[in-house]
């Protein structure tokens, strides 16, 4: 099986055809891969280099905890990868970015209005949780297309707060 695996924007082509060997970007490596009991703890000997990690499946990615760092890893087999590529070309760039609540809490303030031009890193919402005020920032430049919440609202984890679209796209629509 051939997989295209993405970590932090870096793609790796990984082929797995037998138990004791894999190919990464065309290079062969000997592997011994063991799952420890029920937990997600895994032991890997890659060319006899010993590594331990915890791997768990999340909604949108695999989470890998390795040497203290938590990696979000996307694994696609060849077919799924091609499909995603085809779809990606049509929509990717113009898709609105949604700022979601990272945790349950109380909206203390919404600092932007619909139609406002905002820059990456700009604070858009102040959320109170864990007894602290948390400033939620825009992950990209753009225009606020939707504001889903107001001051004083209680929000759940992952609830949509603000949608951000492209400035050009908004102009086209108008």
């Amino acid at each position: 099986m051939k997989y295209i695996t993405t970590v932090n924007g870096q793609e790796y082509i990984i082929e797995i055809d037998q138990k004791t060997e894999i190919t990464v970007n065309g290079e062969r490596h000997g592997v011994d891969f063991q799952q420890l009991a029920e937990s997600g703890t895994l032991s890997l000997l890659i060319d006899n280099r010993s590594l331990e990690a915890i791997v768990e499946e999340r909604e949108d990615a695999w989470e890998v905890l390795l040497h203290g760092e938590l990696y979000a890893v996307h694994v696609q087999d060849e077919r799924a990868y091609r499909l995603a590529q085809a779809r990606g070309k049509l929509s990717d760039a113009s898709e609105a970015v949604v700022i979601r609540s990272p945790m349950p809490g109380l909206i203390l303030d919404v600092l932007v209005e619909e139609g406002a031009h905002i820059g990456q890193g700009q604070t858009v919402v102040i959320l109170e949780s864990m007894k602290m005020e948390n400033e939620l920032r825009a992950g990209r430049d753009g225009v606020v297309t939707r504001v889903h919440v107001g001051k004083g609202d209680s929000v759940e984890k992952n609830q949509e707060l603000i949608a951000i679209g492209d400035a050009e796209e908004i102009k086209e629509q108008q």
Partner: peptide, 20 residues
Amino acid sequence: EIHDELEAAIFATLVAHQRS
């Protein structure tokens, strides 16, 4: 600087492969 992206990729791919 993070050094283990490749290793993380291998781990996740091996688990995904095993599941499929």
